[in-house]
Write a protein that binds this DNA or RNA. Sequence first.
DNA 1: TGTTGGCACTCAATTCTACCGAGTGCCAGC
DNA 2: GCTGGCACTCGGTAGAATTGAGTGCCAACA
Lengths: 349, 349
Amino acid sequence: MARRATHPASSDLDARKATILEAVVSEHIDTAQPVGSSSVASSADLGVSSATVRSEMVSLEREGYLAQPHTSAGRVPTDKGYRYFVDHLASGVLGTVQQHQLSDFFASVRGEVEDVLEQTSTLLSRMTSYTAVVVAATHAHSSILSAQLVNIDARHQLLVSVFSDGSVVKHSLTPPFDVDFETCTEASRQLNALLIGTSLESAVQVPSRQDHVAVLVREAVAALHAAPPTADGERVFIGGSSRVADSFDGVETVRKVLSILEQELLVVSLVQDMLNRGLSVAIGTENGYEPLSACAVVVAPVTIDGATAGAVGLLGPTRMKYQEAMAAASAVSQHLTRHFGGDEENANH
Amino acid sequence: MARRATHPASSDLDARKATILEAVVSEHIDTAQPVGSSSVASSADLGVSSATVRSEMVSLEREGYLAQPHTSAGRVPTDKGYRYFVDHLASGVLGTVQQHQLSDFFASVRGEVEDVLEQTSTLLSRMTSYTAVVVAATHAHSSILSAQLVNIDARHQLLVSVFSDGSVVKHSLTPPFDVDFETCTEASRQLNALLIGTSLESAVQVPSRQDHVAVLVREAVAALHAAPPTADGERVFIGGSSRVADSFDGVETVRKVLSILEQELLVVSLVQDMLNRGLSVAIGTENGYEPLSACAVVVAPVTIDGATAGAVGLLGPTRMKYQEAMAAASAVSQHLTRHFGGDEENANH
DNA sequence: TGTTGGCACTCAATTCTACCGAGTGCCAGC
DNA sequence: GCTGGCACTCGGTAGAATTGAGTGCCAACA
């Protein structure tokens, strides 16, 4: 990875090749058709003929940026070609119409966090015409503000826990004995004393006695600390899954992508994996899921108090409009960050 | 609607026509191809020639049960044809494999109601290879077991209500003043006194004072009684939406159906509408939603203590396997009914 | 050495033709 | 009322011919 000279290092291209590659990619994104040398020669205004472009394309193909569906067709970008494209992309700006759409939305939106995120995913999808994903991170680090045990009936109790991030989680308990009102109230009192201020990560000193109250308390703490309580740890909101049908032509591809989207845990780990790897765009096989090899995914993190609190993402075909998608995703993530991070200032507007 | 004689009333068919119609429908369900007179003549063992079948088919077409894609093609059932078919259907029985699958599932399933219903929808979809819908009815009639106000911070309070059906609902409050711990606790105490035992339908006598506690209490009650609190009133679980891609050929149809499924409120009202009309099957336009005119929907109610507590449904193409679908839906609905209705007996197993 | 116009070549897509065959409608005869 | 027979229709398929976009290569040129 030393000099960059006449023979460019494999990860870099000379100016003309770069221009040609970009022209091919953007035209193919527009038209979904293979791109020929002549249309590149005329659209990109490097003053060369199609023959020259042609020979450059041959070398771009040799280096793996382009591919030919068949001889005597134009070129199509490979995943590597798209990768180069997005890495050298002037980060686009959101259209003013969409900026207003966003501002209006966040200015007027009301209700619970879940509703806001749900609606956000729908909005983002409508703005981009891709499938949108909004992930709200786990509350593992949040502390518990309240833990209450409610007696549904003698054999069923419900532990309702409220976290400092405003999330509420319930856990059913079915102890092997009947529970009367007093026992439940006492257990609830003890749970409150035990749990308030702790987080899910901190260990809790449970009573070791064998009386009903103690058993209840132990069961409750165990349920709370058990792995995914209800699948509420990470919450996913998927908007515009019907867009998948437009984005891909093969029925089989559509089915595969949809069935991935159904598995929300998988979507979460995909997004989180990208954030961990510091990727904001995953193209084709980069995302690591074979059924999504025809897809590109764009993500942008949402941070609250400096910590990652979630993410927004967009899923489309590899020939997606990256500028627009990235601009939209990052704009939405910023709005979300502001919306949930700086409530105080916002309230004064 | 009087005699049924040589000229059958339009809603009824003579035995031979019925046999022919059934043969056409079931073959078309199997093959997805237009059905010709000769294959009917041989499959259905009425001892007549294809010519006779042909003339009967002409009259079935005139009466609207069959249609021809074009001259010199076989016949395809119309919605009316399918309707006759399901109305005169021997109610199928579930295969023993699937019966076991179901029993095993419900014997081993654990966790919160939401998780069970979610998994049920996935199972039902896998069993039938159609898209499954599970609707859990509103808790409007349930009484409130607990209402607690939790102080997130000075400007944010969370009302957490627990209902007798085990559901938990949260409402954010943002009063126009800072709230300290004592005020919140006192408001919470009053809310408990006020709300416990009431249902969402019953009116509540709120305090008319102007102090902070009273204002908080009023806000909380108002939030609780406001129309759809979080969209948690009816809960919908959709399993196997990717099956839509297999069920229909036109991309456009797939998109339309998916985008209906995205609007969960719409799905709820569709199912509820069918239950109200006493329909267990809606074919084509019968469901009332134009984008779903290529679909058939099968529903079965889930009852607890005699009242409708929800429903399960299946959505497929109009040429869906009605017997299987109806058998699966009703079997699942019965399992759910038993699972949530008669917990006590089940626990003794 | 890089660029270019020219030219032969390739190959998917389109069009046209012919033809097959499944299926129909009709009808005369049983 | 049923049937076998027959002419007819028309979508689907197969093959051949044609088109045209686009390529690779090369000799000539600056």
